[in-house]
């Protein structure tokens, strides 16, 4: 797949939004290709949500323009909305109505014929694993279940592009992983473009192939995750994450003895190793020599994290 054959699905040109005198979004030029899973990163208040609202045509830009699949978000908002699924940050459902009814309402608002409504709702609930509670009132749902219901809510309209605003906010770590897997699976299986905003770099790194970091209304970094990560090789720091079948003090000691390793931390069965350069071969050898069995090993992009942390602290 060459990059040339890919279609741009989201394009903004000098997109700007002022509230009173503050520039919330400042001349944003964003391009997202069809099939991308785009991680939209930035600290709170960076302008991510405002950008999303402008993409959907819910908020009018002060200047500039936004297009989704060729439709102007400001001039043809209904066309944009019919191909875009949106999960707002504080997603809500009618608490006194059942999960199935809530989804059916969305389906009907999208003009689906009645016989298709039930089919789509059943399908969507099945994908997110909520079929068993379809007839339960949403008021009884946990936060995680509501988030999954929100995913089902966009599946009902089978959009070309899904925009998720902080989909992992307020759910437990296990729920977060389930949610991320679900998003990745849906994007893959349904060939759906996904824009996911978050302020957690490591979540975005798990499933996104492209990231943009927004700070104070401007896009400071944007590109494919691989490319951004590869810059790590040249940086003076690198972080390695490894999973072992069993973690013993002897192995940790062996890793610490590798020349260039700065620190080793263990959490949830995962070892985080900070080192002065990419030391993956050396660390792997040390583990095997110490009798450990390696399950997974990956290098984290310190370049990205450096950038992110720097701006995050400023904001």
């Amino acid at each position: 797949m060459s990059a040339l054959t890919k279609q741009l699905i989201v394009e903004t040109v000098n997109l700007t939004k002022n509230y009173d005198d503050t520039k919330v979004v400042d001349g944003l030029n964003l391009q997202i290709e069809e099939g991308d899973i785009f991680g939209f990163l930035g600290p709170n208040g960076a302008g991510k949500t405002t950008t999303i609202l402008m993409l959907l045509g819910l908020t009018e830009p002060t200047s500039g323009s936004a297009h989704i699949a060729g439709y102007d978000s400001t001039r043809e908002p209904l066309k944009v909305k019919s191909i875009t699924g949106y999960v707002p940050e504080k997603v809500g459902f009618y608490e006194n109505l059942t999960a199935a009814y809530n989804l059916a309402y969305t389906a009907r608002l999208n003009g689906l014929p009645e016989e298709l409504v039930i089919k789509r709702v059943d399908e969507a609930l099945d994908v997110v694993g909520l079929s068993a509670v379809a007839e339960q009132e949403v008021g009884e749902f946990s936060r995680g279940m509501k988030q999954r219901l929100a995913i089902a809510d966009i599946l009902v309209k089978t959009p070309k592009i899904a925009i998720l605003d902080e989909p992992t906010l307020g759910i437990d770590p296990e729920g977060i992983n389930q949610m991320l897997d679900l998003i990745a699976k849906i994007a893959r299986e349904r060939k759906m473009t996904v824009i996911m905003s978050s302020h957690q770099l490591h979540q975005v790194q798990q499933i996104c192939n492209r990231v943009g970091i927004m700070v104070k209304g401007r896009l400071v970094v944007e590109g494919l995750l691989d490319q951004l990560s590869s810059k790590a090789a040249g940086s003076k720091h690198a972080a390695i994450e490894i999973k072992l079948t069993e973690t013993t003090p002897a192995i940790i000691k062996a890793i610490k003895q590798v020349d260039g390793v700065l620190s080793v931390e263990s959490s949830d069965g995962v070892l985080h190793i900070s080192c002065s350069r990419d030391l993956r071969p050396q660390v792997a050898k040390a583990i095997i020599d110490a009798g450990g069995l390696l399950v997974e090993m990956k290098i984290q992009s310190y370049a990205l994290e450096d950038i992110y942390m720097k701006y995050f602290k400023e904001a």
Partner: peptide, 14 residues
């Protein structure tokens, strides 16, 4: 307040 309005308004209706 319950967050249903933004979901509602993101559907293709006037």
């Amino acid at each position: 307040n319950s967050g249903t309005l933004s979901r509602l308004l993101s559907q293709p209706i006037y």
